[in-house]
């Protein structure tokens, strides 16, 4: 099977180039990550991140035939040949398929990703009804793989100013948590022409999320809350 992989080692290369691999797969190679590991066993200079190989750690996000996804849960059988692999778009390339995610995590940290509750903690758990807990479904499952943010044109142009879909999904995860007492502070933090409002509902984020989450919906809810608060 043929693979075309973008390669770049800043120590040796002026700019990224494409390298072609034609490899024999084994029947046990079912996911794209299996194929990449087979390639790496032949050419150990290929650099990529990977860990859990089951779509929960978020390490092996890359651009697969033009669309962002996780190599470990992308079935080889579903891929058009030759398979073209590139690093996630919009972030600086460190080497080969490995990008510098500093900016992505900086944005995540900027939304204060932790429950803020000023009451002294009770002896037992803070109570939360099943309905209140249900509000967190579709939000807390994010694996920070960055497939969404790096498929978003608004994030490409303003990675330093626009929080991006992953960060905004996390922001809403805390806004929606019945235990959190900082909703207004969180909304203030986002009421800005760039941080939230650079989202133009292009919905690439929804299209690529390997966990089936919907950042766009969460962003819409934050916008709605800001509008209601303004009235």
């Amino acid at each position: 099977m043929k693979f075309i992989i973008e390669r770049f080692d800043p120590n040796q290369d002026q700019k990224p180039y494409f390298k072609e691999y034609d490899i024999e797969l084994e029947p046990s190679d079912r996911m794209l990550l299996d194929a990449l590991i087979r390639i790496k066993s032949i050419d150990d200079t290929l650099a990529l991140r990977r860990s859990c190989r089951e779509g929960i750690c978020g390490s092996d996000a890359m651009n697969i035939n033009g669309k962002n996804g996780l190599a470990c849960i992308t079935k080889i059988a579903d891929l058009k040949e030759p398979v073209k692999l590139r690093p996630l778009p919009g972030l600086p390339i460190i080497r080969d398929l490995i990008v510098d995610m500093t900016q992505f995590f900086k944005q995540y940290n900027s939304i204060k990703p932790f429950v803020i509750n000023h009451d002294p903690p009770p002896e037992k758990e803070r109570l939360q009804s099943p309905e209140e807990r249900l509000e967190l479904d579709g939000l807390y499952e994010c694996i920070l793989c960055a497939c969404c943010s790096t498929s978003c044109p608004s994030f490409w142009w303003n990675p330093d100013k626009f929080v991006g879909p992953a960060g905004l999904l996390a922001a809403y995860r805390f806004i929606a948590d019945s235990r959190d007492q900082a909703v207004n502070e969180r909304l203030d933090n986002l009421e800005d022409p760039y941080r939230l409002f650079r989202c133009h509902t292009i919905m690439n984020c929804v299209d690529v999320c390997p966990k089936g989450l919907n950042p766009s919906l969460a962003i819409g809810k934050i916008k709605e809350m800001l509008v209601r608060r303004g009235v």
């Binding site: 932790f114 429950v115 967190l136 948590d177």
Partner: peptide, 9 residues
């Protein structure tokens, strides 16, 4: 839980 862990309820 006080740290914010989203336990089922």
């Amino acid at each position: 839980e006080h740290f914010g862990m989203p336990f089922d309820r």
